[in-house]
Design a protein around this nucleic acid. Structure first.
Lengths: 201, 201, 201, 201
DNA sequence: CATGAATGAGATTTCATTCAT
DNA sequence: AATGAATGAAATCTCATTCAT
């Protein structure tokens, strides 16, 4: 049984995470101060440090939570989908909107990782989740290849490419490109291109 | 007539830019100090401020110079190429290797831009160049569509998508993905997918 | 008549003091957090503040209690001892082992006192006890001088010097000096030197 | 040849060290902020960090410099003195006044060392110097024992004890003891006791 | 021109103390 | 009476930029 206190702590941690998410998904890590987060959440700076070990821990938590949610959704909408083509299209949609929200956070995270500012433990947790997801998608692609629906390329490699394309398709620097204003149209076009290529048959 | 002094100034500015490029293309902006650059270039910190207004100016200069070089290359290898299909494939290659080198710098730049740390003047200059290039590519695609070689989609939008895909394909966070070790193979696969899609005909 | 509640309070205060003693006699004041003490004692942080006004109060309490215990022992083993020479030697032993235990605490205390962090009231209480003890020893030395057993110097001053020597003999910085591993031998040597000096007669 | 700039740097480092000495020899390390030192020296906080790696480095520098000066003095006044008894008495005087000045700093230093806050390199440098000095004194005592002027005890141990006695004789907590106001008288008494003991022959 | 010492704003993090439950 | 979550002052340290030489 989980005590009331414990539930409250979990709730508050989530509250802080949400405030941090609001800021960190719109501004780069370096431009968000711990004070900013505390102020938005409506608590003192010190309080944050009761729920997270340090600023990087907050970021890592957001990355991991995002990935977990995405994985669950992929499992539901793609892995369990018997039709590989619609499974892949669903996946593209999930990825697209996911990175539309989380790109800034992921960008910040990989930067911090490069600087070796992030503890190995958190890096491992995230890598685990990333690997898991690519495997799920590779499995779907493999299925499609066996069913002769997809071209016969290395499924893992293709999964990685799709992953990367979408991550960066929503990359922050894109904010002033024309397509960013009509995300659905962009997604549709992406699907057409990915499925059929740009060459006329 | 350009005086000797002016030539010297240009030369020295380029020297500094090269040193800065070496550092800024391998580490995020925040992890590179002005001291680092000065030390690598072999001059005093103060000297940098005689050639650039501030640290952000150095970054902007690198971005702009990179784009200019790329534009010139695109003009030569793509715009002037009568065969649209090989023009596009050349462009993919140029983009791919360009971002392989310049991704960190572009990532840093867009982050700074978001923080409103970068002066409007430099942002405009860069946007100008970006727009110019997309237009060049859109022109090629348009040509291909007219020749019935490419599917009939909005050429501008498609140009943007290609642009973004490649920028992010080389995104820094990719450093531990499997494909990062064999860039040529990745590029080939990208071309296949982009040309023909993943669906078997 | 003392109520049961009062007895409980005294008992609990002592419990806290013992936990604090364990930590504060091994680490400098600054390195021991109120949290540490509460955790060792097995109660909440807030509880400590019901028995002590603040962290400094805990320290002062330990100093005072230590001194009181020592005074009682000195009274028993030295003041009431008819043989002045063995009285003094007993005193040296008491002092030596007392400071072996309490040095860190005394060091912390005097540091806090210098910072004016400690309330005048507690300082006075401690000074009172210190004075009392020096007087007891001075009394013994005086007796020895009258009995022509000790050299005729100012007894108060000599008492102070002995006090200080022993306090600092066990000073924390000594931890890597050779003698720190054989305390009894050190004590013996101290006694010899103090009694007879280092000159051969 | 040493350049003018280098000389200036050494001079300024010394200037900062002197300011820091003034504060750190009167207050415990924790009670002195980096700001305090900078303000006293008359420079910005950042300047200190150009001359010292961090706050602990300043402390270590003071400790080491103090020890070096003392060692030089001991060499001159004691080691080279042919009369062992006056050599020892000179040593007592040097030690006494040295610790009168440096006690707070040494106390702070050993506290930091305990907390493992101080880099191993600096600890080694200081330990080296401490060992050197004890050896010098042990040599003198040894000489005295051979000349049958001192009692035949382990010279190293005795040197250590003298060292410790004097370090702590001037220990900060002593500031309100009566003898602290007349340092010369205390020193004289110490010499008498150390030479002849307190027992009447 | 070139320099690099000086600067100080600003960031993260700790922890004694309070106070609502 | 007991608790421990919340607080925010205060500390250290970094680094882009300036400016006297």
């Amino acid at each position: 049984m989980v005590s009331l206190k414990d539930k409250e702590k979990v709730f508050k941690k989530q509250l802080i995470a949400e405030g941090a998410y609001e800021l960190l998904s719109n501004k780069p890590y370096e431009a968000v101060t711990v004070d900013d987060i505390a102020r938005l959440v409506g608590c003192g700076k010190g309080t944050l440090y009761q729920y997270f070990q340090n600023k990087d821990h907050i970021l890592s938590y957001l990355v991991l939570q995002g990935l977990e949610n995405l994985c669950a959704e992929v499992e539901k909408q793609c892995v369990k989908n018997p039709d590989v083509q619609s499974a892949v299209n669903n996946y593209l949609g999930l990825l697209y909107y996911f990175y539309l929200d989380h790109n800034q956070i992921f960008s910040s995270w990989s930067r911090r990782k490069m600087d070796k500012s992030i503890s190995a433990e958190w890096i491992n947790e995230v890598n685990e989740k990333l690997r898991l997801r690519v495997q799920m998608v590779a499995g779907i692609l493999e299925r499609g290849i066996k069913e002769k629906k997809f071209i016969a390329v290395d499924s893992c490699e293709l999964a990685n490419i799709i992953e990367t394309i979408f991550q960066d398709l929503t990359f922050s620097s894109a904010e002033d490109r024309p397509h960013s204003k009509e995300p659905e149209k962009v997604l549709d076009l992406m699907k057409v291109v990915l499925n059929n290529g740009i060459l006329v048959r």
